[in-house]
Amino acid sequence: MDKMIATPAEAVADIGDNATVMIGGFGGSGAPVELVHALIDRFVKTGTPRNLTVVNNNAGNGHVGLAAMIEVGMVGKLICSFPRSADPRVFTQKYLAGEIELELVPQGTLAERIRAGGAGIPAFYTPTCYGTELANGKPTAAFDGRPYVQERWLKADFALVKAQLGDRLGNLTYNKAARNFGPLMCTAARHAIVQVSKVVPPGTIDPEHVITPGIFVSRVVQVQNPAQEELLNRAGATYP
C-alpha cells in the first residue's frame, strides 16, 4: 500500500465540477494552502473544477487560499460558521452580490455534522440553535424534558487537509492547534487528500501518537516548509 502522490497538482487532479470539498483549517491555522493553490491553478488553466461546495470554518482571509478560490469564481456555495476575518472582502463582496450561496452553521454543529458524516450517523439532536432563526425548518424533539434540534450529517467528495507527519499508509500527526477540523474531515470525505510537512517511514510515528489513522486517508503529498496563511496575508500576498 502506497498513498504517496508526487505533487499537489496530481493530488487534486480528479476533483471535478460541482464536487463538495471540505477544507481544513481554522482561519489560517491548518489551512492547506498548497493543495488549495494547486486546485486554483487547474481552474485558471482549464476552467474546472467549478461550482464547488466548500466546507470550512471560515470564508477565507485576504487574497490567498480559500479567499483566492472564492475570488477566481470556482466556489458556488460555502458551508461555514464564521464568514468573517481580518480581511473578508472577497467573500463579502461575492455574497452581497448574490454570487455565492452561504449555509451558516453553528461551529460545534458544523464539527459534529462532519463527525457524524464520517461515523455513518445520518442525523443527531442538539440544543444548539434551538429557538433561533438557524433552527428554521429543522425538526425538533424533546428528550428528558429539554428541546433539541435535529441536524443532518455532512459528507464530502474530497477533503483537503494539512498535517505535520505522514507515512505512506496515511497515518498522520498534526501541528498544535492546526489539528482543528483535519481529523474530522478526513473521516467524512470519500477521498481525503493530505499535505504533510514531512513523510516518514511506517513505524516512525508511535502508534500511541497517531491522530488520524491511515484508513481515513486516500492520498498523501509532501509539502516541505508549507506556507502559513497568516504570514502570507501579513505580507500582502495574492494568488494566483
Partner: peptide
C-alpha cells in the same frame, strides 16, 4: 450584511 455565528450558540447551551 454577512451573518456569522461561530461557537456562541454552542457555548450558551
Amino acid at each position: 450584511g454577512v451573518p456569522a455565528v461561530g461557537g456562541a450558540m454552542d457555548l450558551v447551551h
